[in-house]
Design a protein around this nucleic acid. Structure first.
Lengths: 195, 195
DNA sequence: GTCTATATTGTGATAGAC
DNA sequence: GTCTATCACAATATAGAC
């Protein structure tokens, strides 16, 4: 691993845990086993380092998901893929959503600029598929929001729910895995039985 | 309004927007129309001020909800009340969830200590009702998680979804109101038709 | 209670030798 | 590329007069 990759790895951990404002260059340097001067040698400013970490985190989270949503997969498979993939990614890296949401809320303009050139998620393909299959009886946007909410929210509030439901880390992880099938049922049922 | 209440109001705005680490005492003082010395006269430290704001925010969000969940309302009414109340509270004060989740993630020990004495949400009453009504065919915890996720998540990711779905603030607000009935249908259907 | 001035510390960033 | 030493400034907090 190069020094730069090492820095990025450690920086990600610190930024995940403390955000941009709360992170300290000293702590990142310590974790990376270098000193502050070296850190600034590789990344001139804290913001520069943060931006790189943020973009990597966001892409890790969003890139594959966008690909799935815009693929030519059949609707049922697409939904199944989305749910499985989202839960798997977040299981590996549960800090992503709060980190992203957080900085998005605390520093919207910076993030907006960061993604000025990037193409956003668009729901055209997905919406068309839903409309066709349900003969216009299911609102695609609502279905999408629900699907995302059911997948992601339990990760976002993990510390709260873990305590509230008195579950160990392992029990909570098992529950999240079990949600794959549960969410799939809920969403697919609404497509096959539009109310 | 007393000076103390004034400070708390302004502090809440700043903490909501920037978090504990990102907030500046100077900005809070400016907004309150006083100087830093006065601010420290009323609240000795930034952390002290933050804790007061946090507890107020959390209670505003959680207190009524806990009351509803533990009430003796009939299950259908309880669910309807929960959904309506949650969406109404968050519509008035959409900054709460990210603020709370954020600090809960970035500073779990501080928050845990803050609520050491408080009684948490418990799902006993709710779970019993669900078990009775569905003859044990619906998992109460899963139902609860889904209900909360469907209500709260659209507020948490409002900036993202607004942009992605290209909605104005008003359109997004209307959509959130319309979700009241939608979520109610989804949840109540699962109770009356356990799969 | 309210202010000005200041102490004190933490932190991002750089200079400059090696 | 790597280090030590240090700058410059921002931010919390306090002292002390009124």
């Amino acid at each position: 691993m190069t020094t730069e990759e090492n820095i990025l790895t450690q920086a990600r951990m610190v930024f995940y845990q403390k955000g941009l404002a709360g992170a300290r260059m000293q702590e990142i340097a310590d974790l990376a086993g270098i000193n502050k001067a070296m850190l600034h040698y590789y990344f001139k400013t804290k913001e520069q380092l943060f931006d790189k970490v943020f973009v990597q985190a966001f892409e890790a989270f969003a890139k594959e998901i966008v690909k799935i949503l815009n693929s030519e997969l059949e609707l049922e498979d697409k939904i199944t893929n989305y749910i499985n993939h989202t839960i798997d990614v977040l299981t590996k890296d549960p800090g992503i959503p709060v980190f992203v949401l957080n900085e998005l809320t605390y520093n919207p303009q910076r993030i907006t600029e960061l993604f000025a050139g990037t193409d956003m998620v668009d729901l055209e393909v997905f919406s068309e598929q839903v409309n066709k299959q349900t003969k216009g009886n299911v609102d695609p946007e609502t279905l999408f929001i629900d699907m995302v909410a059911l997948c992601v929210y339990p990760f976002v509030v993990a510390p709260v729910f873990k305590k509230m439901l008195q579950k160990t880390d392992q029990q909570y992880a098992d529950m999240l895995q079990a949600r794959k099938a549960h969410i799939k049922n809920n969403i697919l049922l609404r497509i096959s039985n539009p109310s």
